[in-house]
Design a protein around this nucleic acid. Structure first.
Length: 359
DNA sequence: CAGTCGTGGCA
DNA sequence: TTGCCAAGACT
């Protein structure tokens, strides 16, 4: 009698060959391309990634190109994809591989793990998918599949960090073709063993599923409770000068680190006519002669907070003074005309506000 | 180790 | 409309 891992492997391999989705990153065995896809896919839906993956690889076709690029170019290519630290870590990772491995992505999980932005999951994914090395990988999909298969009702055992999952995943990927089984486990979680309304009728491993046998397929894993997102009301200040508006690059650390945004100023319940000119001058270094507030705020929901951005225009007191070349105004400051954008990264939230303001 | 970090789609 | 959450890494 085969053990569970081998029975699962024997069921998953033919199922994956027949039912896998046709995804761009499955049409290559280039470890660099697979690495890029894994970083993009972190906490991000397949449909979203598909819009970025091809363009990114055209612009940065190999490790050397990415390593040689400016960070601003990388962030520009990542704009709109979110979790921008991933892009900066990927860039740092490319430089690490270029420097320490001569531009060749290593196949050893221990070495992969040393690449910036590559954690335990991604190291396992690259090793197993790109190099067909039997290396465990547990993401949200795999954790859910394995939790249901074994009817694990303890939330600590359900988490992707649970030791039991990594042991089981290791046994499964080495019970057949690692490249196939690694993707099959995730594909099953993404298309059949979904968080809500799992399609157990079409599941290749339903005969092995203890959750289904107990009728627990919809209650495992236990939904995690999240703290409510605090709401922040901010003025999004469009300081205008000669028809251009000032953008500033945010600090490298923290939310939207390194991205280009309008200056943001805390909006107190007392002021409604716009950000106080004195505060605008303090924050931007530009004196404004008048401020005009728009009526409707732009709502932007992050994972852990909600921004209510209140656009307001401030006309610079000094006009008709020529800009410097390129309209750059010192490091991290730039004046843009309507339809124009800085070299670097622009988050969606900035695009939303600029559009509202007619830029 | 619990918190941080974007965005969009869907029930 | 609101809430949930999707191929995690890092601190």
């Amino acid at each position: 009698m085969l053990d569970l891992a081998h029975r699962l492997a024997n069921l998953l391999e033919p199922w994956f060959h027949q039912h896998q989705r046709d995804l761009a990153w499955r049409r290559t065995r280039d470890p660099y391309a697979i690495w890029v896809s894994e970083i993009m896919l972190q906490q991000t839906r397949v449909d979203t990634v598909e819009a970025y993956y091809g363009r990114f690889l055209e612009r940065f076709p190999d490790v050397g190109t990415l390593a040689a690029a400016d960070e601003s170019e990388v962030l520009a290519a990542w704009s709109g994809l979110g979790y921008y630290r991933r892009a900066r870590l990927l860039h740092a990772g490319a430089r690490h591989v270029a420097t320490s491995h001569g531009g060749t992505v290593p196949d050893d999980p221990e070495l992969l793990r040393k690449i910036p932005g590559v954690g335990r999951y991604t190291a396992g994914a690259i090793a197993s998918i790109a190099f067909d090395r039997p290396t465990a990988l547990v993401d949200g999909n795999v954790a859910r599949v394995l939790s249901r298969l074994q009817a694990l009702e303890n939330p600590k055992q359900q988490d992707a960090s649970a030791a039991g999952h990594w042991i089981m995943a290791q046994k499964i990927v080495q019970a057949g073709q690692p490249r196939v089984l690694a993707q099959a486990l995730m594909e099953l979680g993404a298309t059949v063993c979904t968080p809500m309304g799992p399609r157990c009728e079409g599941c290749p491993v339903r005969s092995e599923c203890q959750a289904l046998a107990k009728g627990l397929q919809s209650t495992i894993p236990t939904p995690k409770q999240r703290a409510p997102s605090p709401r922040e009301d901010l003025w999004a200040v469009a300081v205008r000068r000669n028809g251009r508006v000032l953008l500033e690059q945010r600090a490298n650390e923290g939310l939207l680190g390194g991205m280009w945004c309008l200056p943001l100023i805390e909006r107190k319940s007392t002021d409604r006519a716009g950000a106080p000119p004195r505060v605008i001058a303090e924050v931007t270094g530009v004196k404004v002669k008048s401020v005009e507030a728009l009526v409707e705020p732009v709502k932007h929901v992050f994972t852990h907070r909600v921004w209510m951005l209140w656009p307001c225009r401030g006309e610079a007191a000094v006009v008709d003074v020529p800009f410097r070349a390129g309209y750059e105004d010192g490091p991290g400051r730039m004046w843009i005309a309507p339809g124009e954008r800085p070299r670097g990264g622009i988050p969606k939230v900035t695009e939303k506000v600029l559009e509202r303001l007619g830029y």
